[in-house]
Write a protein that binds this DNA or RNA. Structure first.
Lengths: 212, 212
DNA sequence: GTATATTACTACTCCACGGTAGCATTTGAC
DNA sequence: GTCAAATGCTACCGTGGAGTAGTAATATAC
């Protein structure tokens, strides 16, 4: 009964070309990370989620670390592409208002986050068991974004005394991440316009009633 | 040569009472987490760092999870005690200005962070391999802090149109965490007064030159 | 229809690490 | 000085999970 001759063999997964299989495996890994954290991505769990067996994974990736690294690079590249597409070019900056630019960018950014939640989830959320490599990649991506944010802050500096563009750059990036996290956590409660409205109020696009 | 009769036996660690040993082990674990992340805290690595062997750890804690949980609870309790000691009581709030209160609290908070870096490091920094339990505890602590921050924001609400106290509360907490992270990362470059100065500038404690 | 190349599966190995049984050493009480 | 209690150490076990050798199945070309 339990001999190999009588044990039913698992039906084969549909054969697919290598590139499609890679994408399928990365999508499955992303889902596992987003729902259960990095340690949930065991090779067994991933094989099960993808509907294959472990050797199929090893056919596409040299190991678990290689797969996670490929996933990280894919999501990071896509996220940064999306993000930098939202930030106007420097030449556009000169003609406008920094405060307005930041609030409009925030609005577009949060709508992008809502449209591609898994991607942004693994970019901005604190994820259980997140490996060092993911942390480093986030830090590097943040550094790139910080450079643009600082340029925007320096542009705005001319208007307010006591302004520290480096700190302002960090603040902009951190507030964008915070907003993204809340939008992802509860999209109905935290709609983009709440953040945009608050940012407008905070940086003076509406008139304060009484000077503080 | 390699028989147990000739293998030198490890000299005994100095005997210490249970409570002191627990503290020593938790301190060693905190150091490992801060320097290398949670996965670096294996029972072997911890024994080595503490200068004992594994059964000594099991004499104080039922297992690895128990030890990490004890560490988390110790640091969390101490951090929240420190933090709530910094925030004035509600009765004090009525007599003052919310903006001034927030900036003064930020200043005191960042000085506290500099004085107890390991504690705050494991409270605010993104740590490699951080388990779900640590994430949940941070979320719960943040929720508690958010309630106070929201009260402060509601206090400030009366002064500015378009104000969303919930979003403002999240913003205050997130900016405090951001400042703490930068202070911990590079204390010479990110001195508390840079954040305090920027916060003052941002919320209008200095006069804007030109309305935006 | 058959053969072969390509892709997938079963059953297994290996090891890092959590955890422990049994023994050794030290310290304090008498 | 001796003895026993308390604390610490060595050597080992069990297992989850990464990874693979050998075999099976399928799909396409002829």
């Amino acid at each position: 009964m339990t001999s190999t001759t009588s044990r039913k063999r698992r039906p084969y997964a549909t054969r697919v070309p290598a590139e499609e299989r890679r994408t399928q495996l990365l999508d499955a890994a992303l889902r596992l990370i987003v729902t259960s954290g990095h340690d949930a991505v065991t090779m067994d769990a991933l094989a099960e989620r993808a509907g294959v067996t472990k050797p199929v994974i090893y056919g596409q990736f040299s190991g678990r670390a290689d797969l996670l690294d490929a996933l990280l690079r894919r999501e990071q590249r896509a996220a940064l592409s999306q993000l930098f597409a939202l930030i106007p070019a420097e030449t556009d900056m000169r003609a406008g208002e920094p405060a307005r630019l930041v609030t409009e960018t925030l609005d577009r950014f949060l709508r992008t986050v809502r449209e591609t939640p898994d991607r942004w989830y693994c970019i901005v959320m604190p994820l259980p068991d997140m490996p060092s490599a993911f942390h480093r990649a986030r830090d590097e991506a943040r550094d790139a974004v910080l450079r643009r944010a600082r340029e925007i802050a320096e542009w705005g500096q001319r208007r307010v005394d006591g302004f520290d563009p480096e700190i302002a750059g960090h603040t902009i990036v951190t507030l964008f991440e915070m907003a993204a996290r809340l939008v992802l956590t509860d999209p109905e409660r935290y709609r983009p316009e709440r953040f945009v409205g608050s940012l407008r109020a905070a940086i003076g696009l509406v008139t304060p009633r009484v000077g503080l």
